[in-house]
Design a protein around this nucleic acid. Structure first.
Length: 331
DNA sequence: ACGCTGTGCAAAATAGGATG
DNA sequence: CATCCTATTTTGCACAGCGT
C-alpha cells in the first residue's frame, strides 16, 4: 500500500472509530480506502487481493474483505460529508468464478438502489452472466437435512438452527416475527442459466441457502433469517442478507423461478409459498445475540430508507427464545 | 509490557448432487 | 438407491494493533 493510502486510511478509520465508539475496529487489510479530494466528500474504495494474491472478490461474501455493502454503508453512516463513494476492484482471471458472479450481482443491485451516492464503472456488466430481460432458475431442497448432529455436544450454528425449528418456544417466537404459522429452514439460493445442473450454475449452489424462512398467514409477506452464533461477528452479514433479499426479490418478480423435483420429506416446500405476484414484501432478519460493532441501526436505516416498503431489514436476538434449550438438555 | 479483541487464514465438517 | 466427490460454509487458531 502506498504511503499516502495509509495516511488516508487512518483518517477514515478514525471517523469510523469515533462514530461507532469502538477504538478497536479495523478495516480489512485488502480493501484500500482513498480520499479523492482534500475533504471527505469523495471516497474511493478498492477491493484488493489477499495475502496469497487472490482477488477478494472471489472470496465468500461473508468474509469482510469482500463485503463491500457493509463498508459502504458504514462510511455513509459515519461520514456526513460523504457525497460520492466509488467502488473498484481487482478482477479475477476467471470471470465465471461463482463467488465473483455473486459479487457482480450484488454490485448491480446495490449501485441501482444507492445511485445517488454509490458509483461503479459499467464495464462489469459484460462479465455478469445475469442479463437484464433474461430468466434464470433457482434450485429447490433436494432432501431433508440429516438431524444426527443434533446429538453432538458442540455448539454450532446448524444445531441452533435446527433447534429453533424443533423447539416449540423458539418456533412460536419465529412465528410471531413471520406473522404466520409455517417456518422452514435451508432455502437454497443457487441461480442457474438453464436447468439446475452443475455446469449451469452461475452462483454458488449446494450449501448456499437461507438459514430460516417463513411466510405470513395472508401469504403476501416473506421473512428470511440469517442466524449467527455470538462467536461469528462479521460485517459480511449485511452482504449475505442483502444478497438473499435480492434473489428473493427476483423470484417474486418472476425473473428467477424455482426448478426441481418435489421432495416429499421437505415441508414447507418453498415454491408453494414463495409465489410470483403473491409476495409483496420481504422482511430480512439479522438473527444474532452479538453483532459486529459497526452493524447497528443507523446502518440498517440507510438500507431501509432506500428499500422501503418492499424490503425491510431488522435485527432480533435469538437468545430471547433459545436460552432455555441448554438447560433442558442438561436435565 | 500486557491484555483485549478484531482479523485472516486454514482446517474441518457437511450437504448437494453426480455417478454407477 | 447407495456411494462418493468436492464446493462451500463454519470453526479454530495465531497474530497484530491499540490503549492503559
Amino acid at each position: 500500500m502506498k504511503k499516502n493510502d495509509t495516511v488516508m486510511r487512518k483518517l477514515l478509520l478514525d471517523c469510523v472509530k469515533k462514530w461507532s465508539n469502538n477504538i478497536r475496529v479495523r478495516f480489512p487489510d485488502s480493501i484500500i480506502f482513498r480520499l479523492v479530494g482534500t475533504d471527505f466528500a469523495e471516497i474511493e474504495m478498492i477491493i484488493g487481493r489477499n495475502r496469497n494474491n487472490k482477488p477478494s472478490v472471489t472470496a465468500n461474501m461473508q468474509s469482510d474483505a469482500s463485503a463491500f455493502e457493509g463498508w459502504a454503508l458504514v462510511l455513509k453512516a459515519s461520514i456526513v460529508e460523504l457525497k460520492k463513494l466509488t467502488l473498484t476492484w481487482d478482477e479475477p482471471l476467471d470471470k465465471n468464478d461463482k463467488h465473483y458472479q455473486r459479487f457482480l450481482y450484488r454490485v448491480e443491485k446495490f449501485s441501482v438502489i444507492f445511485q445517488s451516492w454509490f458509483y461503479v464503472g459499467q464495464s462489469y456488466r459484460k462479465a455478469l452472466r445475469i442479463k437484464l430481460g433474461s430468466k434464470y432458475k433457482v434450485n429447490v431442497p433436494i432432501k431433508k437435512r440429516d438431524q444426527s448432529y443434533l446429538k453432538s455436544t458442540a455448539d454450532n450454528e446448524r444445531k441452533l438452527e435446527q433447534q429453533m425449528i424443533n423447539d416449540s418456544v423458539c418456533r412460536q417466537w419465529l412465528k410471531e416475527k413471520v406473522g404466520g404459522s409455517m417456518i422452514g429452514n435451508q432455502l437454497p439460493v443457487g441461480v442457474f442459466d438453464g436447468n439446475v445442473a452443475k455446469g449451469n450454475a452461475i452462483f454458488t449452489g449446494q450449501a448456499s441457502a437461507i438459514d430460516l424462512w417463513g411466510v405470513n398467514e395472508e401469504g403476501d409477506e416473506l421473512s428470511i433469517f440469517e442466524l449467527k452464533l455470538p462467536s461469528n461477528k462479521k460485517v459480511g452479514i449485511v452482504s449475505e442478507l442483502f444478497f438473499y433479499s435480492m434473489v428473493m426479490g427476483d423470484i417474486i418478480n418472476g425473473r428467477f423461478s424455482f426448478e426441481g423435483k418435489r421432495c416429499m420429506e421437505v415441508d414447507p416446500w418453498p415454491p408453494d409459498y414463495i409465489r410470483v405476484g403473491k409476495i409483496k414484501k420481504i422482511k430480512a432478519f439479522i438473527l444474532t445475540t452479538a453483532t459486529h460493532c459497526l452493524i447497528n441501526d443507523n446502518v440498517l436505516k440507510i438500507l431501509n430508507d432506500a428499500l422501503s416498503p418492499k424490503f425491510v431489514f431488522l435485527r432480533s436476538d435469538p437468545s430471547e427464545c433459545s436460552l432455555h434449550i441448554k438447560n433442558k438438555e442438561a436435565l
